[in-house]
Computed example of a mutant assay.
Amino acid sequence: MRVWSVANQKGGVGKTTTVVTLAGLLTEVGYRVLLVDLDPHGSLTSYFRFDPDEIERSVYDLFEQPALTAPQVNSLILKTSHESIDLMPASTALATLERKAVGKEGLGLQVAKALRFLQDRYDFVLIDSPPVLGVLMVNALAACQHLLVPVQTEYLALRGLERMVRTIEMVNRARRQKLTHTIIPTFYDRRTQASVSSLRELYQRYPDQVSGAVIPVDTKFRNASIKGLVPSSLDAGSRGVHAYARLLRQLLEVRKAGQSG
């Protein structure tokens, strides 16, 4: 089972779109996928028509009892409208976790512990994390083998990326195995100088980490979210889906290279 987390310390960069689109594309090549929503806003949960304000069981339950069991973890998983995509939903109660976590040890590994019970059930796990460095993002970083960092191609988003890069460096000082990451340019509009210059700066500053797949502005993403569908099932030929398909091919090639190395 491969775990990818999607994170950035700035909101509105396309994290949930990245999670949902990659999940849909992974299922098209036969993989079983679990999505984990660690964002108290619950955008990923809402995408699949579950209400974070009313949901009874969610990832919040993972932090209530330090000693997890397989039945407890499995009870949190919901079926989505997509046959091969399951969801471990968020609830708004996650917003209280930072305050409750004060003085408690070991909470940074709860998601990683939970996923160990699911090794044989899924091929990929994609984690959507909040745009705040705290116990939830720490869980997302600790649980994954590879980190995806969507970055909107505009000036302020690039400044926010600097904070995320520093966080990755901090995490790598504490990990036995280095956390690799891919920076994904999003909301690219080649008609605007701001987008073009921001993309150029990304490649100049992070030449080894920035994906060659650039995600364009595409209204088909919004249309898919309105219908609660993965974008590739709504319009497999859209520019945005093609860009994510290219990204996925690159990520899978890196995965194969790592397995053979």
Results as ranks from 00 to 15, higher is better:
Trp4Met: 15
Val13Gly: 01
Val13Arg: 06
Gly14Ala: 08
Thr18Ile: 10
Thr18Met: 04
Val19Ser: 01
Thr21Ala: 08
Thr21Lys: 03
Leu22Ala: 01
Ala23His: 03
Gly24Val: 04
Gly24Ile: 01
Leu25Gln: 11
Glu28Gln: 15
Val29Tyr: 12
Val29His: 08
Gly30Ile: 10
Tyr31Trp: 05
Leu34His: 04
Leu35Val: 08
Leu35Lys: 01
Asp37Tyr: 03
Asp39Pro: 05
His41Thr: 14
Ser46Glu: 12
Tyr47Glu: 00
Arg49Gln: 14
Phe50His: 12
Pro52Val: 01
Asp53Thr: 12
Asp53Met: 12
Glu56Thr: 10
Arg57Asp: 10
Val59Phe: 04
Tyr60Glu: 10
Ala67Ile: 09
Ala67Thr: 12
Val73Ala: 02
Asn74Leu: 06
Asn74Lys: 15
Asn74Asp: 12
Ile77Lys: 04
Thr80Trp: 02
Thr80Lys: 02
His82Ser: 11
Glu83His: 14
Ile85Gly: 00
Ala90Asn: 05
Ala90Phe: 05
Ala90His: 08
Ala95Arg: 14
Ala95Gln: 10
Glu98Ala: 08
Arg99Met: 15
Arg99Thr: 07
Arg99Leu: 13
Lys100Pro: 00
Ala101Thr: 04
Lys104Phe: 11
Glu105Asp: 13
Ala112Gln: 13
Ala112His: 12
Arg116Glu: 14
Gln119Met: 05
Tyr122Gln: 02
Asp123Gln: 08
Phe124Trp: 14
Val125Glu: 08
Val125Pro: 00
Ser129Phe: 03
Pro130His: 05
Leu133Asn: 12
Leu133Gln: 12
Asn139Val: 07
Ala140Tyr: 02
Leu141Ile: 06
Leu141Glu: 09
His146Val: 01
His146Tyr: 10
Leu147Ile: 06
Leu148Thr: 02
Val149Met: 08
Val151Gln: 05
Glu154Met: 04
Ala157Ile: 04
Leu158Asn: 05
Arg159Phe: 10
Gly160Gln: 04
Gly160Ala: 06
Leu161Met: 07
Glu162Cys: 02
Met170Thr: 13
Val171Cys: 02
Asn172Val: 10
Ala174Met: 12
Ala174Pro: 00
Arg175Pro: 01
Gln177Lys: 13
Leu179Asp: 03
Ile183Trp: 12
Ile184Tyr: 02
Thr186Gly: 04
Phe187Ala: 05
Phe187Asp: 02
Phe187Glu: 05
Arg190Gln: 14
Arg190Val: 14
Arg191Val: 06
Gln193Ala: 15
Ala194Asn: 11
Ala194Trp: 10
Ala194Phe: 11
Leu199Gln: 06
Glu201Arg: 14
Tyr203His: 14
Gln204Asp: 13
Gln204His: 14
Pro207Leu: 10
Asp208Asn: 14
Val210Glu: 00
Val210Ser: 07
Val210Met: 04
Gly212Thr: 09
Ile215Glu: 06
Val217Gly: 01
Asp218Trp: 07
Asp218Val: 13
Thr219Ala: 13
Lys220Pro: 00
Arg222Leu: 09
Asn223His: 14
Ser225Arg: 15
Ile226Asp: 09
Lys227His: 09
Gly228Glu: 07
Ser232Ala: 11
Ser232Leu: 08
Arg239Lys: 14
His242Asn: 12
Arg246Gly: 09
Arg246Tyr: 10
Leu247Phe: 06
Leu248His: 07
Arg249Asn: 11
Arg255Phe: 14
Gln259Val: 13
Gln259Ala: 15
Ser260Gln: 13
